[in-house]
Design a protein around this nucleic acid. Sequence first.
DNA 1: AGGGAGCGGATAGTATTACTATAATAAAGA
DNA 2: TCTTTATTATAGTAATACTATCCGCTCCCT
Lengths: 225, 225
Amino acid sequence: MSIGIKISLNDKLYLRDPQETSLGQNIIKHSILLIDEIGFEAFTFKKLAIKMNSTEASVYRYFENKHLLLLYLVSWYWEWVSYLIDINTMNIKSAEERLNIIISTLVFAHKENPAIDYVNESVLHRLIIAEGTKAYYTKLVDKENTVGFFSNYKMLCEKVASVISEVNADFPYPRALASNLFEMANSHSYFAIHLPRLTDVKVKDDNYEEVKDMLEHFTHSLLSK
Amino acid sequence: MSIGIKISLNDKLYLRDPQETSLGQNIIKHSILLIDEIGFEAFTFKKLAIKMNSTEASVYRYFENKHLLLLYLVSWYWEWVSYLIDINTMNIKSAEERLNIIISTLVFAHKENPAIDYVNESVLHRLIIAEGTKAYYTKLVDKENTVGFFSNYKMLCEKVASVISEVNADFPYPRALASNLFEMANSHSYFAIHLPRLTDVKVKDDNYEEVKDMLEHFTHSLLSK
DNA sequence: AGGGAGCGGATAGTATTACTATAATAAAGA
DNA sequence: TCTTTATTATAGTAATACTATCCGCTCCCT
């Protein structure tokens, strides 16, 4: 059962809104599982259709191609994180404390309570860590940016940047620090598992505590006056 | 004319060493230009062969597939940067100064003197900015890491981390800062041009000065005692 | 109750991609 | 010169990334 939150996304991301129908919800559900399982490069609409007992043509009625499906999932993810940040920081007066909560939310997103039944947020988080950047490293960025495909991410960045500026109004790079926190939360979670020599943090048994500690250290060090 | 530097790469990256033959050098040269032009997803060995007046089968004699070709280019790039850092920091005693030179080298790599005639380093730098991370965000990371495909990048990371530790031996995240400098140098150069709301720096007319300033600010702020 | 409209399923078809195989030719080395 | 090896030319296959058409099933409206 959904707890009633509504993730609103740019409606040009899809041909038919997948949140509205059970086939659409199934596409979301199984695409998350399948991309996580075999990786985005090997993922095809055909394989997805077979896995969910539907047809390729039916999937194409919802998404133009797999790149836009990925963009949809990425947008969904950041919108969800944005929602988590809102409820987790609600009524917290101290900007410092809110920033710490933001960092924890980024790193521990996969441990939050599921919000929507057809989305496995924990798997989605792992997928975003491994495939997320492919959504904007493409020859189509500029066109897609114009249409507003990255607005969720940019708005979240802005939201965090404003908290950063609240902590230290003189810090000259609030947006860059914000986007860097998102990137580092994901990349160092990935490095710790797959390329440990590129980082100093360790992740074992799904324990990302050290990633959080590092991001807090970086942030406080950068924002201390 | 080559100035005689030798870029040595893991020999499992290729089937036949492209540096040894003129066909191989042509593959490197034109693949850089073509990937930069149409993007890695649209890039195929067929298109490359047509562009360089050869055949698909000939390209396949040098590289197993386009993913390994990308890995080759990425390794080449980081090895080249590593070489640039070595000569640029040679005989500089102050670790602080060496770290600044490293940052400048990362950001301004495309402005360095060409080292090898069949590699357009300036285009390669742009390619790495836009496509570089795709080399390690793949389902094959663990296997490829075992074979040593990322050792160039990891060694460079270690080299920079040791300078960081020299500047401040108490800083607990030297490797993470090092890899983050590489990532930020590239990602914020990309953001400044394509997704400016994700950063605070501006890049115009090929002037990346502000990226450098930001990285220096971050680094000094993090390493000050 | 009848008639659309629209959804999803089934099937077919096309151009391109990602290769592998093989024979013929050109170049390079002994 | 003979032999090896590299490169080209050509062909072929399975999978990918789609597009198109038709058909049956639910609704929803009247």
